[in-house]
Simulated scan of single mutants.
Amino acid sequence: MIRAAVDLGYYQELREATHNGIAAATGLAETTVGEHLRKIEANVFSSLHVGVADH
């Protein structure tokens, strides 16, 4: 699914894809695409040690 997002331009400077477009390309529901992308992004940021500081 991340490959589809990248291939469709979801992470381009000017975003070329939407959750709906990725959903159509992968056969997943739009909400599922959103959930998966949020989880993937959270994992990437976590691995980079980028996060919200505890207050």
Rank of each mutant, 00 (worst) to 15 (best):
M1A: 08
M1K: 07
I2E: 07
R3E: 01
A4R: 03
A4K: 03
A4H: 06
A5K: 03
V6E: 04
D7G: 01
D7N: 04
D7I: 00
D7C: 02
D7M: 00
D7W: 02
L8V: 02
L8Y: 03
G9T: 05
G9D: 04
Y10S: 01
Y10V: 04
Y10L: 00
Y10E: 01
Y11N: 02
Y11G: 02
Y11P: 01
Y11R: 04
Y11L: 04
Q12L: 12
Q12P: 01
Q12C: 07
E13M: 09
E13Y: 11
E13A: 12
L14K: 14
R15M: 07
R15C: 05
E16V: 04
E16T: 06
E16M: 07
A17Y: 04
A17E: 00
A17D: 02
T18P: 06
H19E: 07
N20T: 14
N20Y: 11
N20G: 11
G21P: 02
G21F: 04
I22Y: 00
I22F: 03
I22W: 02
I22H: 00
A24T: 10
A25Q: 03
A25F: 01
A25L: 03
G27M: 00
G27E: 03
L28D: 06
A29T: 07
A29W: 04
E30S: 11
E30G: 04
E30Q: 15
E30V: 06
T31A: 15
T31Y: 08
T31S: 15
T32F: 05
T32N: 08
V33H: 00
G34S: 13
E35R: 15
E35G: 14
E35F: 12
H36G: 07
L37C: 02
R38Q: 13
R38Y: 13
K39F: 09
K39T: 13
E41I: 08
E41H: 08
E41V: 08
N43M: 14
V44E: 10
V44Y: 12
V44C: 09
F45W: 10
F45N: 11
F45M: 15
F45L: 15
F45Q: 09
S46R: 15
S46H: 12
S46I: 05
S47W: 09
S47N: 10
S47G: 13
L48E: 02
L48K: 06
L48V: 05
L48W: 06
H49Y: 10
H49L: 09
H49D: 10
H49M: 08
V50C: 12
G51R: 13
G51H: 11
G51W: 07
G51S: 11
V52P: 08
V52C: 06
V52G: 08
V52H: 10
A53S: 14
A53E: 15
D54P: 12
H55Q: 09
H55W: 10
H55D: 10
H55F: 08
